[in-house]
Design a protein around this nucleic acid. Structure first.
Lengths: 333, 333
DNA sequence: ATTAATATAGAAAACCTTTTCTATAAAGGA
DNA sequence: TCCTTTATAGAAAAGGTTTTCTATATTAAT
């Protein structure tokens, strides 16, 4: 069964395909009576222009691809919603690809998107391998590309980033001001944003002549880490350590930490303060409610959406790194 | 800056574009020496065929669209992974669109996908309005379309479904066998799968001459419901009721129920049994661990992936409804 | 040596639009 | 009435591929 084409409509309305095109796109004067005939034919035949053909000649698909390491992580899903909302309003369609955090998936999917001629791409938490290898810098020469978070040091790409550095420092300062002495850092799996936080933590502790201690978990940067985080913290406490504060890489891990500490008889926040990261909704449903660092994901996403839009429309692809500040949310932990 | 085209490669290699095409697609004999020259030119110019042009003539984009109401719900993300994995293996690229559960978004995005000529579409939890209006039945005539879950009664479409009905019945039977007398049902927001469970619950309770009681929450079918569920359950208990079992529409709500019951002094499972739905990872990290109904999301997704593949490749689009059985997972609640 | 078959490659059509260029008819100005 | 402008619409080119059809050179068969 063949789809109806512009030629079918033209024949039905007794005009040329040029005229049909003009009616559809409304970009050239057409006599009212002819327009009406064409519109009727379009409706009757349920004609929908083939966007492949249109894109081919206009050299634009009105489409942008979004890559994310995970679709079930509230941090990313919130950012994605932000990007989506502004791009949709500008008349773009977005397509989402999830890489599962695999560098090879990342380049594979990017190729797929480039081959399909998306007008632009937004990559959330790009894999460090691909960043430092120069892959993205090269890619950015051929297609509007925006990186969100990830390794950015000396990279010639457009970035929108959270100030995880500032957020970490803020949280640590707060803990110290509350009199905490033995602050441990709960580290998530491979992710550049976690690297940054870890660095800042180490440097900060050193500057304050305090002993640093990092708890590591093996896998996952989302809900799956909860159990591992719980075990890590419970084990740490059981080993005889007496931490009085814990900073976690994200809220899920903070949830795990909370659970682990409680299971060892700790009263939170009396015995130990806990601060998470991201201000996702989970931080509000624990008992006690989690203190956390707000990363303004929605705003980050909107910022990204507007930036990639500007990159696609104007030819201003000057490299630019925009940082979004974080906010400390003190709740009950 | 123009992209390099097949013509550029042809000129560079001193052959016709036909030959280049043949080398790329490897679908026609080409002399080894010429092939080599062409391949070198392709590499040197970094030529990537324009998939828009290819799709236009081949009338296939090797692409399938997946629609989901939510990207942060573990149920859907797991199903999506299942679909993805089989389709990727078959050489298809998938694009994800999230509708936020809005019927209008759903048709809008579907149109966008159809206009871009996807080879097929998988819609998770289609909105009931669009199902009963005949929209999907009409759509299915023009493009391979597979619905996963959602309203299916007397609808002429291809379906893959979870047997939520059986799962509900199984859970209720179990509760009764454990001696529970006052079983309440915790109902989630607008979603057909919840409607089914509710119906089964009411019918089952009636058949066993037990009083039925449904707790409703206003919003969300994911993590956002936790707090509402907690309040609903706590409020119910505080009002003087003494439920001895609770069946929730999904694990998140079960988490809320657990929290609400505990806050009212209930010991779980001694005072009240709780059974959730979905067997998501959260059901394993609560204290006590949640009993739940396993919906085999990954398998459901794989089933869907294979089915849509068959629909796209053979022309077998006979309507068919496949049900996947559910399993009761008894843990500690 | 001539003819038939085969291996290889190019020309051109096709896919479905948009857009530029050209043409005609109607209207306006002298 | 004749010329110029304007309103309207069609023809054809363009976009980048794949594919069918045709052509040539080479090999095999007689």
């Amino acid at each position: 069964m063949k789809r109806t084409t512009i030629q079918d409509v033209a024949s039905a309305a007794g005009v040329s395909i040029t005229t049909v095109s003009r009616v559809i796109n409304n970009n050239y004067p057409v006599k009212a009576s002819t327009r009406k005939r064409v519109e009727e034919a379009v409706d009757r035949l349920k004609f929908k222009p083939n966007l492949l053909a249109r894109s081919l000649i206009q050299n634009s698909t009105k489409t942008v691809g979004i890559l994310t390491p995970s679709i079930e992580n509230l941090f990313f899903s919130e950012v994605i919603k932000g990007v989506d909302s502004v791009l949709k309003e500008k008349g773009y369609t977005t397509f989402l690809c999830h890489t599962e955090g695999e560098a090879t998936n990342e380049v594979e999917m990017i190729h797929s998107l480039v081959d399909r001629r998306v007008d632009g791409m937004v990559v959330l938490d790009p894999r460090k391998e691909n960043v430092v290898s120069g892959y993205f810098e090269e890619l950015a020469k051929r297609v509007p590309l925006l990186l969100v978070n990830g390794y950015a040091q000396g990279i010639g790409c457009n970035y929108v980033l959270n100030d995880g550095e500032g957020g970490t420092r803020m949280a640590l300062k707060y803990l110290i001001s509350e009199g905490c002495k033995r602050i441990v850092f709960l580290r998530g799996k491979k992710s550049h944003s976690y690297d940054i936080k870890e660095e800042v933590y180490l440097e900060f502790m050193k500057a304050h002549s305090m002993e640093s201690r990092i708890l590591r978990i093996k896998d996952g940067n989302d809900i799956k880490t909860v159990e591992q985080a719980k075990d890590a913290v419970a084990g740490y406490i059981r080993s005889g350590e007496k931490p009085d504060a814990l900073l976690a890489c994200n809220d899920w891990m903070a949830v795990g930490a909370l659970s682990g500490a409680k299971s060892e008889g700790y009263i939170i926040p009396k015995d130990m303060r806990i601060i998470g990261f991201d201000n996702t909704i989970i931080s509000m449903i624990t008992e006690p409610k989690l203190s956390t660092v707000d990363q303004q994901m929605m705003k980050l996403g909107q910022l990204a959406g507007n930036r990639i839009y500007k990159m696609m429309t104007t030819k201003d692809i000057e490299n630019q790194k925009t940082y979004l500040e974080t906010k400390l949310m003190i709740r009950e932990s």
